[in-house]
Amino acid sequence: MNSIDSVTLEVADPDAAARFYADAFALDPARVRVRGSDAPSTGFRGFTLSLVVSQPGDVDALQAAALGAGATSLKPAAKSLWGYGGVVQAPDGTVWQLATSSKKDTGPATRDIDEIVLLLGVEDVKASKQFYVERGLTVGKSFGGKYVEFTTAPDTVKLSLYKRRALGKVAGVSPDGTGSHRLTITSPTGPFTDPDGFTWEPAGR
């Protein structure tokens, strides 16, 4: 089992991005970091970050805070077969899914986050799965060539693979995009670049 220590979002204005993530999600800066970048990037960057919470009220609270801090709504929060969730896009362009598997509130709404999940949109799920297994990651769940979820240590960022076009549809955006992913993943597994161009760097950098 391997883990993702942190993800780094490469943004045009690191100070503004850091303020947004503190105000919107109160994210731990040790797990979600920002740094400056002017690398060309257009359209969908090929990934989303999901904040998994305990109940629908928590989704609503996070979405309201994000919109209040300057995010754009891509999908309003709504019930679905799997639970309840919505999608927002941060001012820096990162797409965030806000989700819970619960369909009913069991207590007062909070902005407490249970899990952070990085979903990489890849062209060939089976090939990417094999690539990551060869680098020491352990598969937790796998649904053929559609979706893979890796087992990671508690209190770390979780990793999943999804077909890029399907992930764009889930996020409410066109799957088309060019240039930099504007994302770096930090893990003991690194350094390497995966088949879809996602960059991993070793912990401690």
Rank of each mutant, 00 (worst) to 15 (best):
T156E: 00
A203K: 14
A22M: 08
P56N: 09
T184V: 15
I113V: 11
G36I: 10
G70W: 00
V133L: 12
R35W: 00
E10Y: 14
F192K: 02
A24E: 06
E10L: 15
A16V: 02
F20A: 03
V59C: 01
A30D: 09
S180V: 07
H181Q: 05
K141S: 11
S73H: 06
K75G: 05
V122H: 04
G144C: 14
E123L: 12
G83E: 09
G190C: 06
P191V: 06
Y147I: 10
A127R: 04
D176K: 12
E123D: 04
L183R: 07
T186S: 14
K103A: 10
Q63I: 03
T42P: 06
A66V: 00
L67D: 00
G197Q: 03
K103Q: 08
V32N: 06
G172Y: 02
G83T: 02
L62W: 04
T189C: 11
D155S: 07
I113A: 12
Q55V: 13
T42A: 13
A65F: 01
T42K: 11
S101N: 12
G46R: 04
Y162N: 14
D176H: 08
K129W: 05
P108Y: 07
A24H: 01
S102W: 01
A65Y: 03
L98S: 06
D23C: 04
T48D: 05
L81R: 14
A127K: 10
I4K: 10
L118E: 07
G43H: 03
G57W: 02
A22Q: 15
P154F: 05
A109S: 12
Q63P: 00
P108V: 04
G86C: 11
K146R: 13
V87F: 06
D105I: 07
T48P: 05
Q130W: 14
A203M: 10
S187E: 03
S73C: 12
P91H: 08
A16M: 05
D155A: 09
G121F: 11
I4T: 13
L74F: 04
V170W: 11
G144T: 09
A24Y: 08
L120M: 07
P202L: 11
L137A: 10
G168S: 05
V133P: 05
T8E: 10
T156V: 05
A166N: 14
T8F: 06
P29R: 01
S187G: 14
L119K: 04
D124W: 03
S101Q: 06
D38K: 08
S73G: 03
V122D: 01
P76F: 02
A109V: 00
R19F: 00
V133N: 04
G145Q: 00
E149W: 02
S180N: 12
V148P: 08
L9I: 09
Y132D: 02
F143M: 15
D13G: 03
A16C: 08
F143L: 15
R35M: 11
R45D: 02
G190M: 06
P91C: 10
A78S: 11
G177R: 06
A22L: 11
T8M: 12
D112Q: 08
W82I: 13
T156K: 11
N2P: 14
A26H: 02
I116K: 14
